[in-house]
Amino acid sequence: MPEPLLRLRGLTKRYRAFTLQEASLDLPPGSLMGLLGPNGAGKTTLLKAILGLVRLDAGTLTFQGRDLAQHGAELRRRIAFVPDTPAFQPGARLATLKEAHAPFYPGFDETRWKGLMADFGLDPRRKAQELSLGQRTRFALTLALAQDWDLLVLDEPTTGLDPVFRRELLQRFSEALDERRAILFSTHITSDLEDRADFVTFVRDGQVVLSDTQEAIKGRWGVVKGGLDLLDEPVRRAFKGLRETPHGFEALTDNLPGTRAHFGEQALVERPSLEDLLVLLGRKAHA
């Protein structure tokens, strides 16, 4: 495995009502990682830590082998960021906003920016206050993609973007990826990442509960659907997440072959979708 482009170790940030606890993960170059979790799980805190927007209580962040806390300003030249609700000075024209932004990033490609603006249907003469949320997100994407980035960080930028646009965007991402670059993509729309993300990281209650290649996860984990009579105490305890309805249960296992062997024909054991994983991992506390 190559040296990770981004390495997080033991990231901890305490807020009054919420704690991000010792989050660790590795993002190898050349890969797209999906960051998934319910609202309030800590995804945004984690991404903000990478951008130096929160003061961490503990933990280290390494980017291209160097400490992000120490060399943040220099390293951030190689990082592009798209926030969940991008904000811009309301009175400024898009062209002006670009001029204020571009000088900070060596290698910002003016020609590519113009092309992106045209592709995304944005007029540089428009003012920021005239844009809808979807358009602001598109504009933030033009700034990010025209940058010469090594790491692209996206914090749920897909709210307000239609499916066709999102699919084209993901295609742009996979074209842009090469062996020195990586993308960290937080989203609520798990179906966008299905079979597209190389790595998936699930965050829940401030902890990284699962982070691995999508292939490995799909090979090992499974969803079990069956009647309530199959549930006894040892079975419940073996499940990694469980949702009961009057008609039956849905559960998550991290031992797909073993579970298949155990239940045989009595229950349906399938490969999980990312959404299954997210929803059921989320239910663990309620089981």
């Binding site: 951008l51 130096g52 927007l53 943040g72 300003a73 220099e74 390293l75 951030r76 030249r77 990082i79 960021f81 926030p83 609700t85 991008p86 904000a87 811009f88 000075q89 309301p90 932004h101 900070f104 990033y105």
Partner: peptide, 17 residues
Amino acid sequence: HHGTLRELHVLPVTPRQ
């Protein structure tokens, strides 16, 4: 007020700057 403080902090500049 305009919510762009985050944009400023994300730029590759140090707090000292």
